[in-house]
């Protein structure tokens, strides 16, 4: 499979001539078309944010008009009374714990698979590779019964454990590829200095795979933050719901309070967009690399 080398996915091949001559008519047309197309992406989001400030009547009657008043308290209501704040905290906990577990467990396993020879390593690696291909439908039914049996449902573990497991195959695959590409002298030198396995892992492996870890972290964190099916099935307690399921509960609870609903949607989307705009290069790269394996 294709692997991207993260170091030189940067400058696109730009039209050198275009720069010198200034704006040509064809350039103008190009930008007009692209801007209109980009509007397709921003218009719904803009409409969403604007509608948070409108009354139900305004949303129905004048969908395109600016709000007549800017009542910011609606966001506080959605956040506190509507429970969006609670859902965000839950999402944060679940995402953080599973991402850290993926990074820790994944890098340890990748280190063993890449740099140590042991019986059964081929089989174990094959099983993890299989995990890259298995769709969630192939296991969630029995997983649900198992978690019931273990009393894990309606606890945060019911999400943290599967999210970790779902992220591990990719993490091991990517990090192993990183480690494989490193010269073996690095490790042998450390060994000659008398470093044990744990020490090598800690002071050689971890610093070296940092860039790969960032990719894994972005991919895993976004996957956990956005996951819906398992969260829908495993969490019924409103105190523990994550954003996707919580927002759905919110949207049925306040189904006719449209501006509150739009406010909730705005609260959960805008920070994600801001984070993305700030780190767009790294995030886009992490996501595409993660998906391409």
């Amino acid at each position: 499979m294709t692997t991207f080398d993260s170091t030189h996915v940067s400058s696109p091949d730009v039209h050198q001539a275009g720069r010198k001559k200034g704006l040509k008519p064809s350039d103008l047309l190009f930008h007009v078309v692209m801007t209109v197309y980009a509007m397709l992406f921003f218009l719904p989001l803009l409409w969403m944010a604007m509608s948070s400030f409108k009354t139900n009547g305004e949303i129905f009657q004048t969908p395109f008009a600016l709000p007549t008043s800017w009542d910011w308290s609606v966001f506080a209501t959605a956040w506190a009374d509507g429970g969006i704040g609670r859902y965000a905290i839950n999402s944060f906990i679940v995402t953080a714990v599973s991402t850290i577990a993926i990074l820790g467990f994944g890098s340890m396993a990748a280190f063993a698979f890449s740099r140590m020879r042991f019986r059964g390593s081929g089989l174990l690696l094959t099983l993890f590779t299989l995990g890259l291909l298995l769709p969630i439908q192939s296991y969630f039914i029995a997983q649900n019964s198992l978690f019931e049996y273990l009393h894990l449902k309606d606890t945060r573990w019911a999400l943290i454990i599967p999210y970790t497991a779902m992220g591990l195959p990719l993490a091991i695959w990517l990090l192993k590829a990183y480690l494989d590409s490193l010269p073996k002298e690095l490790f042998e030198a450390a060994r000659i200095d008398g470093a044990g396995d744990l020490r090598i892992y800690w002071s050689v492996v971890l610093p070296l795979v940092r860039s790969g870890m960032a990719t894994v972290a972005i991919f895993s964190a976004l996957a956990a933050w956005n996951e819906f099916l398992l969260a829908l099935l495993y969490i019924q307690n409103d105190e523990l719901k994550t954003i996707p399921v919580g927002l759905l509960a919110f949207s049925t609870k306040y189904i006719t309070d449209y501006h509150l609903l739009f406010a909730a949607l705005t609260i959960v989307t805008i920070p994600m967009i801001v984070i993305y705009v700030l780190f767009h290069r790294r995030i886009a790269q992490g996501l595409t690399e993660g998906s391409l394996k």
């Binding site: 820790g104 467990f105 994944g106 396993a109 390593s121 174990l124 993890f128 497991a165 892992y201």
Partner: peptide
């Protein structure tokens, strides 16, 4: 080194 990952998986 492999155990934690494998156990969860």
């Amino acid at each position: 080194f492999v155990l934690p990952a494998f156990a969860v998986f």
